[in-house]
Design a protein around this nucleic acid. Sequence first.
DNA 1: GCGTTATAACTGACTGGTCAGTCATTTCTG
DNA 2: CAGAAATGACTGACCAGTCAGTTATAACGC
Lengths: 215, 215
Amino acid sequence: MTDLTTEAPRNRRELQKEAKRSALIDAALAVFSRVGFAAAKMDDVAEEAGVSKGTVYLYFDSKEKLFEGMVKAKMSPMLDNVFDMMSDTSMSATERLKQHLRFFYKKILDSDRRQIMRLIMSEGPNFPELAEFYHANVLSRGQAAINAIIKQGVENGEFRSMQGHGLMQNIAAGALIAGMWKLVFDRFQPIDLDAYFETHVDLILNGLRAATPSD
Amino acid sequence: MTDLTTEAPRNRRELQKEAKRSALIDAALAVFSRVGFAAAKMDDVAEEAGVSKGTVYLYFDSKEKLFEGMVKAKMSPMLDNVFDMMSDTSMSATERLKQHLRFFYKKILDSDRRQIMRLIMSEGPNFPELAEFYHANVLSRGQAAINAIIKQGVENGEFRSMQGHGLMQNIAAGALIAGMWKLVFDRFQPIDLDAYFETHVDLILNGLRAATPSD
DNA sequence: GCGTTATAACTGACTGGTCAGTCATTTCTG
DNA sequence: CAGAAATGACTGACCAGTCAGTTATAACGC
């Protein structure tokens, strides 16, 4: 029962190392979310993770690398899920789109992952490599998924045909803005994500729907 | 013709002072846009404005005050315009909404003002006073304007009745995301604001439209 | 098991560079 | 020439990144 599997960490050391890396990533997200990249102090990240500053540099070469590593680590678990949902064509396009959006609200907006969204917007221009990663791995995939659903919907007759430039952005926009709002303006005018979600889906689906006199 | 009017600057000194203040504000916008608040250097703002650092402090007490002053100065000219457009009820609600959105695309998204939008999102949580100002002066007004249009449209029979929570955010979302996209992802996947605008308006108006069998 | 040694992981004081804000001096302008 | 405006060298605080020294864990010999 020793090293039949090469993937999993084997001894106490490796376990602790993995735990510490994950603690550092959580701490980094917390600190970067709180003050942004430039104002974040490595000392604070270290303290939040319960280690000394030197240790942070054993896991990440620099502040930039920590930031990039954190974003990638926090996003990776999402990526597979999206793929799974793309292929199921047994549902109606309407239902699929709704499910996609619901997934987005639950998994991203209603968790600390929405902070990452904001960080990408804030720091993206200064981290081209990260913006590209995000575009290639998150946005392109979302785009592909939504396009596939739209295509099915148009063929079905559920949706009218729109060859619109930026259709995906327009469909997802409401969700992104909800996340932003929660982070920036919620204290002045709170929004209820569930109710907001209903409005969003209602508006978008009606906007896409083919004219049906009987409805 | 000396001091009949108290508003306008009178002599060379006052004119220069005003010009310098405005140059500083432009410089501040440029530098903050480029690197964000924390990483911006007062020396760079001074250089960009063609003055020495000491001069910056003759006009603004601190970096924070410069930032806040810049945002307010850049936003103020917008605010009156919005009010003007609210009251004209001679057009159809559809037309009014379209015009409102067009105004937004032209005046905000397609100018350096979209940088301010991004700065509010990035720095808002660290500048509560500014977020509140923006909410009270920009968002609340936009919300009032859109609600008024929706109301007219529903009474007209142009729009179906939606009592949706977050309707305004959902209607404006597409435009905000377009601005963000241009700033962050345009180099990887450019968007054409005009074509995007068409999609946005099409989707939203159709989403709001009351069911009309004859259309 | 138990002591010994090797090595991996961790620490935190320190360094070098950076930058917001100041102020004594100089340069404009009425 | 008086006083307002502008300058830029300077200061003190701050912080990313380093590294000599310490501690924890594994490996080995018995």
